[in-house]
Structure formats: structure tokens, C-alpha cells
């Protein structure tokens, strides 16, 4: 089993090398990139906005309900919401959600192309199919931090709405919490890990779709496996990056 996993990891890194060989003509690639931006980024805006707003609200309410001691200042609601959204929820939790949403889309679309011989057709024509299929996804997911930025903003906004209109605290307290002890490095850390997660979101599902074997049933299995591995990789990388960047 260990040999199989090691071999798969090796194959994954070899795939990275292949992606950049023999690039597709720019006039064709341009269209592919725009299409991927539309499919992966723009199409995810709705779900990202919905989840972020309500989770932000829930974080604020949970924090407010746990502030039972009157010595604890109310601005802590805004502070906790901001820290949760910027440090973990938007970059990590949202990436796990996207591993399901984007990842299964990528694996199933590339897997279906494999099953219906469309990838063989590309290869036979002399097209570098990995470059043609995966490179535009990598470029599109360079815009993934933009999606996470929106998630941060809407999560904090959801927290504000829940706190102020839910009667858990005053607007001024919440805003004071947002501004207190603000560390710009936390934002840099969040966007750096988002960028790295974006690369995994583009390539791990592509790997599972591209190298799958079998028929329609295996496309479904490959999507599940790709979700599991993308999530595991994101969580492990999250731990490693946090240890490297946030500890002294």
C-alpha cells in the first residue's frame, strides 16, 4: 500500500512537469482560461457568498452566547468573528467546500473525457492533453484568493448583521472588535495559504480524472477519491503552513 501511495505521489509530481511541456497556442489557451474562470470562479460565487454570510453569523452568535461573564468586553464578538473568518474559515473551510464543488466538477469532467476517448483524441492529434486541460485550471485558480477575499468580507458582514440585528451587541462594539489588534500579516498568511490551496484544488482533482481507468461508475469513484485526497492535502498543508508562518 505504501508503495502504491508513493508511486501515486511521484506520478502527481511528474504530471506537474508534463503540464508545462509543449504549451497550447495562446489564441486557443486564452479562450480556455476564460472558460475555466467562468466555470470555477464565477460559478462558485453564489455558494461562497451564501455559506460565508451564514457561517459568519453563526460564529458571531456562538461567541456572543458564550460571553456570559460581564467583565468580558462585547467587542470580542467582532474580534472573534474577524479572526475566525480571516485565519481559518475563509481560506481553509472554504477550500474544503471547494474541494467538493470545484474538485468533483474537475474530476468528473476530465474523467468523462477519458472514458469517451476525448483525451485519446487530443493525444492522437499531437496535443499535450495535460497542458490543454490542466494549465487553464491552474491559471483560473490563481484568482481563487479573490473568492476567498469575498468570503472573508461576507463572513464578517454576516457576523455584523447577526450581532447588531440579532440584539447580541452594538454596532460600535463589533466595529471596535474588528479594528482591535489587527495584524496585516494574518491577511498575508491567509492569502498565501489560499494560493497554495488553489494549486491543489486545480491539480489533485485533475490528476484523479486524467489517470482514471474504467467507465462511468469509476468516474464517480474518482470524484470521491479526489475529494478525500484534496481535503486531506489541504488540511495537512494548513497545519504545516500555520506551524511555519505563525509560530516563533
Amino acid at each position: 500500500m505504501l508503495i502504491r501511495y508513493t508511486s501515486q505521489i511521484g506520478k502527481y509530481f511528474l504530471m506537474w512537469k508534463e503540464i508545462f511541456k509543449k504549451p497550447t497556442k495562446w489564441s486557443v489557451m486564452k479562450g480556455l482560461i476564460f472558460k475555466e474562470v467562468d466555470d470555477l470562479i464565477i460559478d462558485s460565487l453564489g455558494i461562497v457568498a451564501f455559506i460565508s454570510f451564514f457561517v459568519g453569523g453563526v460564529v458571531a452568535i456562538q461567541t456572543a452566547l458564550n460571553l456570559t461573564n460581564s467583565f468580558i468586553p462585547k467587542y470580542l464578538i467582532g474580534f472573534a468573528t474577524r479572526q475566525s473568518m480571516i485565519l481559518e474559515f475563509a481560506p481553509t473551510f472554504m477550500s474544503i467546500v471547494m474541494a467538493g464543488k470545484m474538485g468533483s466538477f474537475i474530476t468528473s469532467s476530465i474523467g468523462s473525457m477519458r472514458v469517451t476517448e476525448q483525451i485519446d483524441a487530443l493525444e492522437v492529434m499531437g496535443v499535450n492533453s495535460l497542458n490543454y486541460l490542466v494549465f487553464p485550471k491552474i491559471i483560473a485558480l490563481m484568482l481563487y484568493p479573490f473568492l476567498v477575499g469575498i468570503s472573508m468580507f461576507l463572513g464578517i458582514f454576516g457576523g455584523y448583521v447577526a450581532t447588531v440585528y440579532g440584539g447580541f451587541g452594538a454596532s460600535t462594539d463589533f466595529i471596535e472588535g474588528l479594528q482591535r489588534d489587527f495584524n496585516t500579516f494574518h491577511v498575508f498568511y491567509a492569502f498565501l495559504k489560499t494560493f497554495i490551496f488553489g494549486m491543489f484544488l486545480a491539480t489533485i482533482p485533475s490528476f484523479h480524472g486524467f489517470y482514471m481507468k474504467g467507465g462511468a461508475l469509476e468516474v464517480g469513484k474518482a470524484s470521491t477519491v479526489s475529494f478525500v485526497w484534496t481535503s486531506v492535502t489541504i488540511i495537512l498543508m494548513n497545519y504545516i503552513l500555520t506551524q511555519l508562518l505563525l509560530t516563533q
Binding site: 489564441s27 486557443v28 469517451t116 476517448e117 476525448q118 483524441a121 492529434m125
Partner: peptide
């Protein structure tokens, strides 16, 4: 690039129209 291939299941690109499928090798 000198080879033309007709696959068993046709292997047409699902996301492209008939004209785009046919013009694909020329565009590439």
C-alpha cells in the same frame, strides 16, 4: 499531425459545436 483518427465512440468534444469540433485541428 499527419494522422486522422476515427474513434469507436466518435470522441467528439462535448463542449464544442459540430463546426468547432471539425475546425479544432486547424485551430490548434
Amino acid at each position: 499531425t499527419e494522422i486522422g483518427m476515427l474513434f469507436q465512440g466518435s470522441a467528439l468534444f462535448d463542449s464544442m459545436t459540430v463546426a468547432e469540433n471539425v475546425g479544432f485541428p486547424l485551430k490548434m
